[in-house]
C-alpha cells in the first residue's frame, strides 16, 4: 500500500535489537533508547531546516515517548509493517510528523535518505502523516481530536478478535480541548479497553499560548480518572519512567499516561517557548542545537 519501502539493513538491525530487548532487563535499555532519541532529534532539526517548515517544539517534546515506544515497547516489524497482529500506534498530534518520520526512518521503515524529501513536491513525507504513503503510519492525522477515536476502534477490533495486540495513541495536551477525545474516552471506558494506552504529551503550550491560559485543562489527571482510566503521571523525558508507564493495565481499565514534557526539549533556546511551535531554525541555530544535542 505504501509508496516507501523498508531499508533492509537498518530494519534487520532494528528487528534483532527488538528481539534482544524483549528479553532484557528494562533498565539496561535506557542508554540505547536515549541514543535513539538523540538521533531522532538530530535528523529532525536538520530536516526542518532543509524544508523550512515543521513543528520543532512539539517534535522535541514527544521524541522520548516515540523512541521508547518504537525502541522497546511496540511489537512492529519494518519488514512487514502491515502484519495483522502488529501493535498499533497513532500519532494524533499529526503536526509532529517530523519526529515520527525521523523515528520510523531510524528504525528502518524507510531509508533515512528519504528524510531529505520532507515537504518537497510529491514527497511521501507530507507535512502531516499519510498511511497510504508511509509504512508504519496507521491513520492520517493532522486535524486534532481524530487519533483517539480511531485508536479506540483499533483496540475494539483486537478485543473482538481475541487478540493480545496493544494500541497506543499520543495526543497533544492542547488537543484535549477537542470534544471528540472525551467521546472516545467514554467509549474506551465503557468497553473496558485495557489493551489501550492513551498518552498525553503534556508540554503545557499550544500554538498561541500556555494551555492553562487558553482553556484550562487541569485537573487533568482527575479528568482522566473520572472518565474511567487508570492514570499514570510521569516525566515524559525519563525513559525508565516511560517504560514503566507503558506496561499493561493493572486494573482492567484503559490506561492514560500523562507525560510531563518540555516543548522543544533538548535545545536550551527552544525549550518552553511558545514561538517555537512552528518556528524554523536558521542554519546557525541548527549548528548551536546540534552542539547541545551531541553533548
Amino acid at each position: 500500500m505504501s509508496t516507501l519501502t523498508a531499508d533492509p539493513v537498518p530494519a534487520g538491525a532494528y528487528n534483532s535489537a527488538r528481539r534482544e530487548r524483549a528479553a532484557a532487563d528494562p533498565a539496561s535499555l535506557v542508554p540505547a533508547l536515549q541514543e535513539l532519541a538523540r538521533k531522532v532529534r538530530t535528523s529532525d532539526i536538520r530536516m526542518i531546516n532543509r524544508a523550512q517548515l515543521g513543528h520543532i517544539g512539539g517534535d522535541f517534546s514527544v521524541t522520548d515517548i516515540l523512541a521508547t515506544l518504537y525502541g522497546a515497547v511496540l511489537s512492529v516489524d519494518p519488514l512487514d509493517p502491515a502484519a495483522p497482529e502488529r501493535d498499533r500506534f497513532i500519532l494524533s498530534k499529526g503536526h509532529s510528523a517530523g519526529a515520527l518520520y525521523s523515528t520510523l526512518a531510524h528504525c528502518g521503515f524507510f531509508p533515512l535518505s528519504e528524510l531529505n524529501t520532507f515537504a518537497q513536491p510529491l514527497s511521501a513525507l507530507n507535512g502531516h502523516p499519510n498511511r497510504v504513503k508511509v509504512p508504519g503510519v496507521e491513520t492520517n492525522t493532522g486535524p486534532l481530536g481524530h487519533g483517539f477515536p480511531v485508536a479506540v476502534g483499533h483496540a475494539l477490533a483486537a478485543k473482538l478478535q481475541g487478540s493480545s495486540r496493544r494500541t497506543f495513541v499520543v495526543m497533544g495536551d492542547g488537543e484535549l480541548q477537542e470534544g471528540s477525545n472525551w467521546e472516545a474516552a467514554m467509549t474506551a471506558s465503557h468497553y473496558a479497553l485495557e489493551n489501550l494506552t492513551a498518552v498525553v504529551d503534556r508540554n503545557r503550550l499550544q500554538q498561541g499560548a500556555r494551555t492553562e491560559d487558553t482553556k484550562q485543562l487541569e485537573p487533568l489527571a482527575d479528568k482522566w480518572a473520572a472518565f474511567g482510566f487508570e492514570v499514570r503521571t510521569v516525566d515524559g523525558h525519563d525513559i525508565t519512567q516511560l517504560l514503566q508507564a507503558f506496561s499493561g493495565s493493572t486494573t482492567g481499565k484503559p490506561v492514560a499516561v500523562i507525560a510531563d514534557t518540555i516543548k522543544g526539549k533538548g535545545v536550551s533556546f527552544i525549550e518552553d517557548r511558545v514561538e517555537w511551535h512552528h518556528k524554523v531554525p536558521t542554519a546557525q541555530q541548527v549548528e548551536d542545537a546540534l552542539k547541545e544535542l551531541n553533548q
Binding site: R88, G153, H154, A157
Partner: peptide, 9 residues
Amino acid sequence: GVGAGLANG
C-alpha cells in the same frame, strides 16, 4: 473514528 479504527484492525 471508531469505524476507521475497526477497519484498520
